[in-house]
Design a protein around this nucleic acid. Sequence first.
DNA 1: ACCGCCGGGTGCC
DNA 2: ACCGCCGGGTGCC
Length: 943
Amino acid sequence: MSRNFMRSSSWNFLQLARYGRTANHSQFSSSNIFFHLEEDDLSGEDTSSLADSQEDFDSAILFGMLRGNVVGLRYYSGVVNNNEMVALQREPNNQYDRNAVKVNNVNGEQVGHIKKELAAALAHILDQKMAKIEGVVPYGAQNAFTMPVNLSFWGRAENKQAVLDHMMKYGFRLGPIPNSLQLGHGSAKSKSERAGPSYRAPILPAVQMTTEQLKTEFDKLFEDLKEDDKTQELEPAETIGTQLLSHQKQALSWMVSRENTEELPPFWEERNHLYYNTLTNFAEKQKPENVRGGILADDMGLGKTLSVIALILTNFYDGRPFPTKKIKKQELAESDVLKSNMSQKQFKAAKKTELSTDSRKESETLSQEASSSRPKRQKARKTKYTYSSASEEDEAWLPRKVKAPAECTLHDDDLFANALFGLPTAVRKKKNKKGVTVSQSISKAGPEGQRRTTLIICPLSVLSNWIDQFEQHIKPEVHLNIYIYYGPERTKDPKVLSDQDVVVTTYSVLSSDYGSRSESPLHKVKWLRVVLDEGHTIRNPNAQQTQAVLSLEAQRRWILTGTPIQNSLKDLWSLICFLKLKPFTDREWWHRTIQRPVTTGEDGGLCRLQALIKNITLRRTKTSKIRGRPVLDLPERKVFIQHVELSEEERQIYESLKNEGKAVISRYVSEGTILSHYADVLAVLVRLRQLCCHPFLVSSALSSITTTADSTPGDVREKLVQKIKLVLSSGSDEECAICLDSLNMPVITYCAHVFCKPCICQVIQHEKINALMHALVDQRRKDATVKSIVVSQFTSFLSVIEVALRESGFMFTRLDGSMTQKKRTEAIQSFQRPDAQSPTIMLLSLKAGGVGLNLTAASRVFLMDPAWNPAAEEQCFDRCHRLGQTKKVIVTKFVVRNSVEENMLKIQSKKRELAAGAFGKKKSSSSQLKQARIEDIRTLVDL
DNA sequence: ACCGCCGGGTGCC
DNA sequence: ACCGCCGGGTGCC
């Protein structure tokens, strides 16, 4: 565990403080802090605990190059082009030579072996991971028996000499490869049909870009995206009952075209009847499968969910919308009118389909489908859902009424899910009715049955939101079958799933299914489409959850995320893998062609990355403009920082705690043991921050006063009880830190400070809370309908605030990490209600709920204590400043003057820079990280 | 000749 | 491999 701990990034460390808050008691216990840190690590916040080779990749420098030979070509089927990249792979179990090193082409097919004398030298280096060795075949690609290979050795600077020495021992000298050797013989090109263009010599280690440069480039990367030509709009299918905003129609158009495109994926060209990859110079006969999907990276609150729902219904099958009902004669007239409304794009797509399948019949059906109008519900139910001219294939796609075994219907799960998410009764009723309609594929539909089902994977916190939005945006008469794959009653039968139109599940369910012995039905279905909501949750490629997602079988793949790159370029890799972008699904090619060129500032690296992102990503921010007008007409948002002075008494306690902490920390610093005393240091910091919020938070008395579940864990409490007994029994003459008199009704803090109970209670009456209550009362007087969110990282602080709110007669509700999903949903729904009985204040714990939480009923946000990570604060503001907000949003951040909080603001702005610059940034060495952490701590306590 | 030379067989690791 | 290497056949010039 300590290993994990030491490796975690400083960001991760900083997050810990927030995490500690999630468990109400952890601030009292260093072991708890540790526990949560580790948990956080494992849950994928940090990817540095990956294989060491991963780290080596990032900090690698070029040691030198060497010309070697690939032998045994005639025994293997893998072929290469001149200048094509090849991969080296150790083969320790080779029966002829345990030093064997295989040479594979970009596709992973073996080309040959490294000649044994050289392999003998390389084996040790590869096995010990002293260097990563990359190969390029400079010429002679079509040789029959052997071919040359240029090897480049990459690794950490500290390994360079050892590698050079080792190679020297075997008689190989590494050096730069002269251009004369590099380009090979003039005849090489003419001999080969597969030969690519002449290729420049591998670029020698380029000048490392500064963080600032990279940041600028990174910003540009996405800036430029906004200005490209993804401005086509597409009207959604008739089945969508909601009018889409312009940018949503653009998203729809882009997504539909991404799903139906026949274009080659980025960096592939057709040459001489072969498909040629311009990055690796790899070529093959087989057309690389196109990425039917991409990344919808719109900012939060732009309506990604609605865009996807529209996509599902609009591009349900072969570029056609979700089929609806029979066309009746009198409706045909109407449909002619509607036909003219059919967008150009839709029509083109239709034509294209017609051409490709060469089926006139289908095209007739199509125009009817596209223009079908609304039937009366009754009729629709009686109808057999057929078109007069529907082809057999089409028929298979129509919803039909079938008997379904009880356990296969939606009832049970729906009921369960509805209970779980607290969906309103009306919805439940409707669902039950709907539930009996289960679509059934017909075996004739295709060799493996046509795919029809979209799988949506999302965090639990937004699951109910998906369901709500389907209800809200799809016309009620449309029989779209949705299955919530969640809860103990979920089906085990893949057939049940593949008979749905949409299946919604969560990452954790998917992951636990994947990890369990019995086979996961989710992994047996051949999905039409898989949608990852909050798709950056798969950014740790080693997490089981990521593996579970990557092993899903689907034709169309979508990632929804507001933050495609969170920490570094590495984050993008899992996403690319999910999209099955060849050849990047192999980490080596990703690194050699994109990641390393970008991080080392190699020629064109950023251009490549940009070309890649541009191809697969659509991103708009809230400030993006369409035809000169903002995408969203969001009301203004203002952020105020409200400084608060500590009262005399508070200041006294604060200073004494701070000095105590400073003494401890500076001792650690001078001893150089600060990092091994992290838990202690953190405890000090947390106490200081809590004190800024409210002195009571650092008092053990809290547990006996608040009525909520907040409590000190038994053992710690016991320890404190012992201590106070000791203080009392020993007749200690300790004095109260507040009144400086002898103790009267003593209470003890975790840090073993002792106060008089009346003294500390008096403190509560003073600043802070005071600032908040003043603002709230003031607000209520001006406009009682305005709702507010009060945010803190400390649930115990929220509990204190609760008391104050009750005293002033506020209606409030609360959302924190300890609540069940059902209770959370209840809290949100009651808060969002517009009626007079609805609470006007939401107490929100900073990390609870995560992204996607919609609290647009509120237009005021009070941030009681600054967060370590500025992004977390932003996210918090976005919960109410998003689509659906009608009022001006005012955010107030309370910051205590001359305190750890002010220092945190400083660190925040530093972090903000880092976050932007971390993209592509060379990973700091662990010693640098340590130093940075120490610096952070010193800033915080003014050391 | 316990050599050199010739030419056939042969061929990754 | 239009090579190198191996080992058998062979042997003045």
